[in-house]
Computed example of a mutant assay.
Amino acid sequence: MLSPKQVVCRWVDAFNSGDAEAVAGLYHEDAVNHQVANAPVEGVEAIRQMFREEFAAAEMVCIVENIFEDGQWAVLEWRDPLGLRGCGLFHVVNGKILSQRGYWDKLSFLRQHGLPLE
């Protein structure tokens, strides 16, 4: 079984390839992904759809700064090529992501990608 850090490394690879199916395959069926700038997304199907929409809207790249692991948790500190920085907390149970919280500046992201401000 994969450790939380190994799961997050696979998540980064799938994210960077823009593969919503591969990303979604790393989550439990009843997982919750809460990017705190947005409402929580519940369930693997909704998470899959979220990533499809996000990958279609902007080219995103996650450059790993650090990954820390403690028990069932992994923390990812990241940056992107445009200078945005953030971190994600992943609760991994039995080799799958049960919950994820992400912290980043949504306004900077929208401006950097030329997306409409909400």
Rank of each mutant, 00 (worst) to 15 (best):
Q6V: 06
V7D: 01
V7T: 07
W11Q: 08
F15L: 13
D19S: 07
D19T: 05
A20E: 02
A22W: 00
A24K: 00
L26K: 01
L26I: 08
Y27N: 09
A31Y: 06
N33L: 15
H34T: 11
Q35M: 11
N38P: 00
A39S: 08
E42A: 13
E42Y: 05
G43D: 14
V44N: 01
I47D: 02
I47A: 04
R48V: 12
R52N: 15
E54K: 00
E54I: 01
E54C: 03
E54L: 04
A57G: 09
A57I: 08
V61Y: 09
V61E: 15
C62I: 15
N66A: 11
F68H: 09
D70Y: 06
G71R: 07
Q72R: 04
W73Q: 09
W73E: 13
V75Y: 11
L76R: 01
E77N: 09
W78K: 01
R79S: 15
R79M: 14
L82S: 14
L84Y: 04
R85I: 12
R85N: 08
G86L: 05
C87D: 07
C87H: 08
L89N: 03
K96I: 04
I97A: 06
I97P: 01
I97N: 05
L98T: 07
L98P: 00
G102D: 15
Y103V: 15
Y103Q: 11
K106C: 13
L107M: 10
L107S: 10
S108I: 13
F109M: 15
L110A: 09
L110I: 09
L110M: 12
R111F: 06
R111M: 11
R111N: 08
Q112A: 14
Q112W: 01
H113D: 10
G114W: 10
